[in-house]
Every structure is written in structure tokens, then in C-alpha cells.
Nucleic acid binder design. Structure first.
Lengths: 346, 346
DNA sequence: TCCGTCTTGTATAACGTTGGAAACCAGGGG
DNA sequence: CCCCTGGTTTCCAACGTTATACAAGACGGA
């Protein structure tokens, strides 16, 4: 079933059928009608693969996130799918499970020429991996990790967001504020802007940033939060607040607190990060830093679509790739309600 | 950058390069090496779009679910992506937002010839929509809705699963068991096998299935569960147990109970459906029916891949499409712990 | 030496589409 | 009556790949 069949049926040339299909205007109504009738009769649908080959575009963009089971990425993926659809693009989805080799594979064009562009949220990828990229499809990076490379990057101001969260905990009188979610042994993991924000805000307020209150994790899921919180408590620490790397870790931590009879927020206030819907429905609703996910999705898709439509943006005065910062908001909920009897700040 | 360029560089024909790329065995080592050198020198990568056109296959299967923000579908999508990758397929993702027109669009081949097959979880689609489908790519249906149509269908035994859940609630002594999640005004919505299971198990145990304990919902998210539970309580009902259509509804309901001072499980026991990770980390962990998601993903992908590889399976004695039923398990957790003082069953 | 056989490489034709150029056809002006 | 013009349609080539058929050597046995 191809243009050829329709052309024969209608008694016209292949190109005329193509013109009708593509709504080319200089086709007489009579011809158009005749062709349309043949199309309907045969149930013809254009072969998009052939069109892609001919036009060099597929209308498909890929989205690669670490893990779809993580609701943050799932919600983000949903937003990306919607936004892409508005621009007549479809989304090819992949998840890298946070493994460097998978991330590398994705950037190197695992689907050469079938995707027009790529949105990637890297976790483990190193700058050198990206520097050696040869695939010419537009790439846009999202998430906390930053590279000094010529690709658009979309992320909220993680340091400012973390500082706002810690500020809030200080404001309600907490002083022993734990950070849950430092990464394993690599203290200086380049993704830890949120840890830096925690340190910065404490320092700015003259509160000691106790290293013992930094809990490390193996991953970013609820179980990792639970493990980290348990480890912290087992080490004899008594934080009066927890700032978690993300909501999942916060939720895992809160579960452990519940098991051990610690009340949230009376004994320990908790702030998470991501604004998962899940956080709004726990027994104690979770205060959280809410990145504007729809804005992230929109910026990412439009970065790709823009480059495909208009070519790379003319070098602005500063030149080069853009650093886009969507808005964020601190949503105060039950997990930080009420002022405890902490000492006033000096 | 095409086979032609590589061929010129290596001083051989296009087809020979193609043979090397495709690991055709009758190529002398010398030639192979020469060609490989040219490939490496030019950084050649095959154009998959052209390959797709020529071979008539793309290696892409589409997965259409109602909503990615729903963790059940997100987790399922993750499993499908993984399983597809094992078979060297990539997944194109779409979500229909449970709207019939979107579901219809997807089945009619919204990406004609770019997808080799389609996995669809329909909500609103009617049998006649599917009956008129012309796209010839293999289609497999997943989820609670059943159609008497020649497509493989994958779903756990929803009635049996619901009965197991209700049975468990009866076993721990509950008698006023509410059902949360009937659909709007359409009482006989064809998706409500779980409601039928609730009715059947109550009937089998000689417990009255009180219509007043059936709460309707507009959607399937936490907010809908909260609304439904609030409505039930506002209507003066005092259930001692809740069987929810899914975990999200259960979680929303539990939130409302917490707000109103009802204890779970002491005052109201709760059973959900889906085994979301989320349900394992609430203040009260959620008893739930756990469908084997990885099995669902595996069956769906292998149904598609099988038809693509071997053609439609030879008509079994019964003939026609298959009804595949993955396993499920009832996971008992805190939300149904402990036996209350209900009267013994007669 | 010659012929069949086996191996290796090549030429050509598709796959279905679209862009560009050329051809066709009426109608009107010279 | 012919040519020109403008609109409409057709012809041809190309996108990059792989399948098919075939040609060219190499090799061994008669």
C-alpha cells in the first residue's frame, strides 16, 4: 500500500498523490477529490519511515532518565511527552539506571538518525564522555549535574533551593539539621549542589555544619533514605531536622522515624525535594522544594525543537550554550509545621 | 556520511561495506580489515532510518498507558523498557490520559510503519473502536478491560484477586467492607471486575453487600480516593474495612482517615491494589494485591516480538488470540494487621 | 589443460517518499 | 493562428540501505 497504488487507482501520477497528501495548494479540486477518494478507498496511510529517510527528520526525540520507577522522573516524562506532542514530536523513552555506560551509549546515538534530538538527565556521566560525542543531533541536559560543555543545560538553582530549605528549618528553630543523601564515598561528587547549599546556609547563619549529620546513600530511593536515617540514629545522632536530597529519601527516613517513635515534625522536622504527589498524601504531608517540572519539560523540548527548526541560536553576547533556570518554590506542609523551642540565632 | 563514502575510502563496492557492517561471513580478512579501517577513519554509523525502510522493521514498539504520573504505569513502563531492550527493541512511549480519542488514535497507527508493534492499556476504548482497526502492526492489550476481539490480552484474574483481598478482610473479622473506586455514574462500567469480585466474595460468605458502601470516583489518583472516602464518611457510613480499586485510592483514603482520627487498621483495615513501592513506606504500610508487573511486561513484549519473528501463532485447538494471566499475590502488611472483634461468619 | 565448484566481490534494483525541473494544457493577447 | 503565461501535473533523481543475481577469481580433480 503505497503512493503508487493510490496513483494507479486514481489514474494520476505518484507525485500528484503526494501533493494531495501534503496539502500542496495547486491541485484542482477535481483532481484532489479523485485522489482523496482513492486514498479513502484503499485506506492509504503514508509510510513515515520513507518520509523520514527522504526528509532527514523523524519527529522523534529521545528522553533518557535514570529510572522510571522514580516518580520524579515519571512525572517529568509525562510532562515531556505532553509538551513534545504540542510540537508534533513523539518521545522515545529510555532509562539508564544511572549507569555510566548506558548514559554514554545514549549520548553516542544509540538510535542514530531515528531520533532528531535527545534530552538526557545524567547521573554518572563524565565531562570527557560528552566531549567526545560525535552524534550531531541536538542534546540538552537536565538535572543537577553541570558540565562546562556546549550543550544547553536546564536545572533549577540547586544551591539556592537547598539554602531556602535549610533557611526554613532554621526559621522554625531547628539547629541540628541533618543532610540525607550525600553520595557514597565520593564526598565531592559533582552532583552535590544541594549538600553545598546546606553547608552554605548553615555557615551563613553561624550554625555549625556537623559532619556527623551528613548521611550517605547508595541510591536515591526510599529504601536508601531509610537505611541512611537508621544509620544516623544508630550512630547516636539526634537531629532535630532533616533535609533530604529528595522526597523519596525523606519518605524512607520518615518511615524509620515512625518505627522508632520519633514524631514528625515535633521531634524531627523534614524537608524533601521534588514535590512528588506522594508527599502530599502521607500521614504527615511533606514540606518540599518544588521544581517547576512543566517548565523543565517545556524548556527542554523547546531547546531541541528550536535548534531543529531554526538551527543553533545565534551566539548571544555571552555566546554559546544556555544555562536555563526554571523556577522553584518551597512548599511548607505538615512536616515542618510549628516552632520548636530551639535557641534563637545569634 | 554513508556506505558510499566508506566504499570510496576503502576502494570497494557499497555492498561489500554493507557486508562488513552486517557481519556477513564470506569476506576475506584483508577486505574486512580495509573496510573496517575506513569505517573507523570516517566514524561511519549506519543510518537506521534507511535500514528501516529497506527492511520494513524499525525495532521500535510503542507502549501507551493512561498516565505516566501514576506509579503503577511508570513502574510497568520501566519493566517494559527493560524487557524490550533484552530483545533489542526500543520503546516509544505515549500516554492517553484515559481519553478515548487518544486511545483510538494510538490504535489506528499514529506512527504508521515506525512502530513494529503496540502495547496498549485501554481505559475508555470501546470494542467497536478496536474492531475497525486497520493498522496491521501487532497489538497486545493489557489491563482490566476485556474485549472479545482477536488480540492477545494480558491481565491477572481481577475477580479472583479482588476476592482474595475481600476474603482477607473477612478473615480478620471485618464485615462492613467498603469498595472505593466504582466508576462515576456508569455502574456497569466494563472495567469493574474488581467490584464484581468484591460482590462475589461477600455473597459467597453470606455477608450483605451494602450498596451504600460502594464509593464512586472520577479518576484513579490519590485525590479521587480522598474525595471518595470523605464522601463515604460524610454520608454517615462507618465501614470497618476498605478495599480500594488501587493503591493510590487507598492512600488518598488513608490520608482522609488520618485527618478524621480514624486509625488504620484498628478502626478501618485497608487493602489496595497494584503493590506500589509507595505503599511500603507510609506511616502504615499498605496491604495490597500485587500483580507480577515484570511478568506482565515480559508477556506483552514477547507477544509482540513473537508475532514479529514467527508470524501469528498457529491457531491452537481453541484457536485465536490468547488470554494470558500473570500471577498475583496478596501482600499482607500493617494496614490489615490484627483481628478485630467482629462476629464470626455463619 | 580444462571444467565444475566454491568463494568473494560487484552491479543493479528495489523500499516509499519528496524536491526540482520539465512538460502539458487552457485561455488570452498579438 | 501562434505564442506566451500561469497554473497544474508528470518525470526523474535522490535519501541510504539491503536482496538478488551475477561476475570474477581460486582451487582441486579429472
Amino acid at each position: 500500500m503505497s503512493l503508487k497504488d493510490v496513483a494507479e487507482q486514481a489514474g494520476v501520477s505518484i507525485k500528484t498523490v503526494s501533493n494531495v497528501v501534503n496539502k500542496y495548494e495547486h491541485v484542482t479540486p477535481a483532481t484532489r477529490e479523485k485522489v482523496q477518494a482513492a486514498i479513502d478507498a484503499l485506506g492509504y496511510r503514508p509510510n513515515l519511515t520513507a518520509r523520514h529517510l527522504r526528509k532527514g527528520r523523524t519527529g522523534i526525540i529521545a528522553l533518557a532518565v535514570p529510572e522510571l520507577g522514580n516518580p520524579y522522573f515519571a512525572e517529568l516524562a509525562g510532562a515531556v511527552v505532553d509538551t513534545a506532542a504540542e510540537h508534533d514530536y513523539t518521545v522515545l523513552l529510555d532509562h539508564t539506571q544511572g549507569r555510566r555506560e548506558r548514559e554514554l551509549l545514549v549520548t553516542q546515538g544509540f538510535r542514530a538518525r531515528v531520533i532528531d534530538g535527545l534530552i538526557l538527565n545524567p547521573l554518572e556521566l563524565e565531562a570527557e564522555d560528552l566531549a567526545s560525542r560525535t552524534d550531531e543531533a541536538p542534546l540538552v541536559l537536565i538535572g543537577e549535574r553541570r558540565y562546562d560543555l556546549p550543550y544547553d543545560h536546564i536545572a533549577i538553582d540547586n544551591i539556592a533551593a537547598a539554602r531556602a530549605a535549610v533557611r526554613h528549618l532554621l526559621d522554625i528553630g531547628r539547629r541540628r539539621i541533618a543532610f540525607l543523601g550525600a553520595r557514597g564515598d565520593r564526598h565531592s561528587h559533582p552532583a552535590h549542589l544541594r549538600l553545598l547549599g546546606w553547608q552554605a546556609e548553615l555557615a551563613a547563619s553561624g550554625v555549625t555544619a556537623d559532619e556527623a549529620l551528613i548521611a550517605r546513600v547508595e541510591g536515591w530511593d526510599r529504601a536508601d533514605g531509610a537505611t541512611a536515617m537508621a544509620a544516623l540514629l544508630d550512630a547516636g545522632q539526634h537531629p532535630d531536622a532533616v533535609f533530604a536530597y529528595n522526597d523519596l529519601i525523606a519518605i524512607g527516613a520518615m518511615r524509620v522515624m515512625a518505627e522508632r517513635g520519633l514524631r514528625v515534625p515535633q521531634d524531627v522536622a523534614v524537608v524533601g525535594f521534588d514535590d512528588l504527589t506522594e508527599g502530599r498524601y502521607g500521614a504527615v504531608t511533606l514540606t518540599t522544594v518544588a521544581p517547576d517540572k512543566r517548565a523543565i519539560a517545556r524548556m527542554a523540548v523547546e531547546s531541541i525543537v528550536g535548534r531543529l527548526t531554526d538551527g543553533p541560536p545565534e551566539e548571544a553576547p555571552g555566546g554559546g550554550p544556555r544555562q536555563l533556570q526554571p523556577e522553584f518554590a518551597l512548599l511548607e506542609r505538615e512536616s515542618t509545621v510549628g516552632r520548636s523551642a530551639g535557641p534563637p540565632l545569634d
